[in-house]
Structure formats: C-alpha cells, structure tokens
C-alpha cells in the first residue's frame, strides 16, 4: 500500500484548478457599485536590495504579440473615437519609444512639420527693447520683447508665452535676474544647450513659429503630429518627416546605443494604436474615405 502522502499531493493538484473553474459560478455581484476603486496588492516580496542589480536599460516589451495597425486603419478607429469633436481642437499624437540606456543622453530637438499643427504660438524674446534684434523679433512674430519688464513679469508669475528666446547680449542680464527658479521647471529657461540663446533673433523666431519641440522622457518622445482634420496623406508626410528627424537626432548622439522600438499613434480621446509602418492594410478602407470632413 502506498504512503498516504503520495496520494495527497496529486489530490492537492486536482483540487486547485477545480476551484479556479468554480470561480465564475460564485454569486454574481452585478449590483456592485461602479465606483469600486481598484487596489494594488503586492503579491511578491521585493528582493533584497543588495542582491538586486539596478537595471541599466528601460524594460522592453515583445512587440510580436502586440496588435499592430496600418496608418489608415488607426486613423479609421481614431476618427470614430473623436466623433463630434472639432477638427482643430483634437490632435493626433505620436509616441515613439526607444531601446536605450537609462542614463544615456536623450534626444531633444525642434522640427517644422510639413503641415503645421499649431500656429498660434506665443514667443517671448529677451533682448534690449530698442535694439535692432528686438525690431527683428517683433517683425518675425514674437509677442513679447524686452528685458527688465519681462523679468519683473515672470517673477510675478505672469507667463504669457509658450517659448522663450534670449539674445546673446542679454544672456548675462538674464542670468543675473535669476529666472531659473520660475522658468526652469516649465522648460522655458533659455540656454545655449537647447539652442534658445541666439544671435540672429529674427530667423530663430521665424523658424519657431511653425515648429514644435520634442524631447525624450523615460525613453519616449511625444509630439502632436496633426490636427484631426488631416487626411491620411498629410499625416503620412508629417509622420515621415518626424521619424527622419528622429533618426538624424539619434545619429548625432555619436554611437550611443539607441534604436526606435515602437511607434504609437494616438489622439486626444482615442487609445494608442501601435503602427506597423504600412500606410494601408489588406482590408482597410480607402484613404479617400478618411479625407472628408468629420
């Protein structure tokens, strides 16, 4: 006769799945309040801090199992999600994920999309108000130009602009005014590193008016690439332009290992669709259908 324990062990294994399968037959709690908030429960104990090695890379998921969409398919869904919204108020967004080091240099640049998304950008230029540079900046479309009065305004917390440029000659004055505390967290502080301290103010403002800025945060670059009213062709040119500039930016980092991992197209009110790089799938609707008004 076998030892009773040898019987117990398989029994234990049999009962486990039967419990699991019996779960749906539990009294259905259909009347549960909808506001039932989810709670997080740590099931595994964190390993010993000394033993665990810190990861140097961002975690990457396997995209082979992921659902991927062609551009037209994604736009088809997104336009359905955005039904009833304004053609200019909702935006298409791109999220580009990199395979990269956590502590490496990050991508940061500006580009002018072939079809600009936002045109009403307010630009502030820090330059002596009666100089030639200030006149240039005003002519190019800057909304705020000056020195002391702008510093005073910023210190009071009145920030009525989305971008800030600084003329090379005013840099010292600006640094003395100690605006970093106010502008720094907003990413508006002009510095040579970001290319916002310039000598030719007029040209810089001009290139900025139709341009959008992007930067890599936690291995992801996010950028608004189109208005909801754009046609698939317009979106395609915009996305191509963006991806090409990104590749150039990566090449400029001089051999830092960085590759594009995933490209996601999303919008203001729609979920994110991973793109597979195709313009059109086998059974997607024609691009012309998506070109009409919303």
């Amino acid at each position: 006769m076998a030892h009773p324990r040898s019987l117990l062990a398989p029994l234990g294994r049999i009962t486990a799945p039967s419990i699991a399968s019996a779960r749906p037959s539990l009294p259905r709690l259909a009347a549960l309040p909808l506001y039932q908030t989810s709670i997080r429960c740590k099931t595994t104990k964190a390993p010993d801090a000394r033993k665990r090695k810190a990861r140097k890379h961002y975690l990457q998921s396997d995209l082979r199992k992921a659902d991927q969409f062609s551009l037209v398919d994604a736009m088809h869904y997104i336009r359905a999600f955005e039904v009833g919204r304004g053609a200019t108020s909702s935006k298409y967004e791109m999220h580009v994920r990199f395979r990269t080091l956590k502590n490496g240099p990050s991508v940061r640049n500006r580009l002018r999309l072939p079809h600009p998304v936002k045109t009403d950008l307010r630009i502030c230029v820090i330059a002596p108000p009666d100089s030639k540079a200030a006149a240039d900046a005003r002519a190019a479309g800057a909304s705020l130009v000056g020195e002391e009065e702008i510093f005073a305004k910023i210190k009071e917390g009145q920030i009525e602009f989305d971008r800030c440029l600084c003329h090379m000659d005013s840099l010292q004055k600006m640094n003395k005014a100690a605006l970093g505390r106010v502008l720094g967290p907003k990413g508006l502080m002009p510095s040579t590193k970001t290319g916002t301290v310039v000598t030719n103010v007029g040209a810089a403002v001009k290139s900025m008016v139709g341009a959008s800025e992007y930067r890599e945060r936690d291995a992801v670059v996010r950028l608004a690439v189109g208005q909801l009213g754009f046609t698939p062709e317009e979106m395609q040119t915009n996305i191509k332009a963006f991806m090409e500039t990104l590749k150039k930016d990566i090449a400029r980092l001089n051999g830092t290992p960085k590759e594009i991992h995933e490209v996601v197209l999303s919008s203001t009110n729609a979920p994110g669709f991973t793109l597979n790089g195709e313009f059109k799938g086998a059974d997607s609707v024609s691009a012309r259908v998506l070109s009409g008004p919303l």
Binding site: H76, R79, A80, F81, V83, G84, V285, L290, G292, L294
Partner: peptide
C-alpha cells in the same frame, strides 16, 4: 447617443460627416 452609438456609426460610415 453621442458617446456610445455615434462612434459605431462613424466607424461603419467613415466618409459621413457627423457633427455634434
């Protein structure tokens, strides 16, 4: 109707302009 049903109509009739 706008939130639940119009997206479905828009998905099935992508060329149809729908305004809210």
């Amino acid at each position: 109707f706008w939130h639940d049903i119009l997206p479905r109509i828009k998905y099935r009739n992508p060329a149809l302009p729908i305004s809210v």
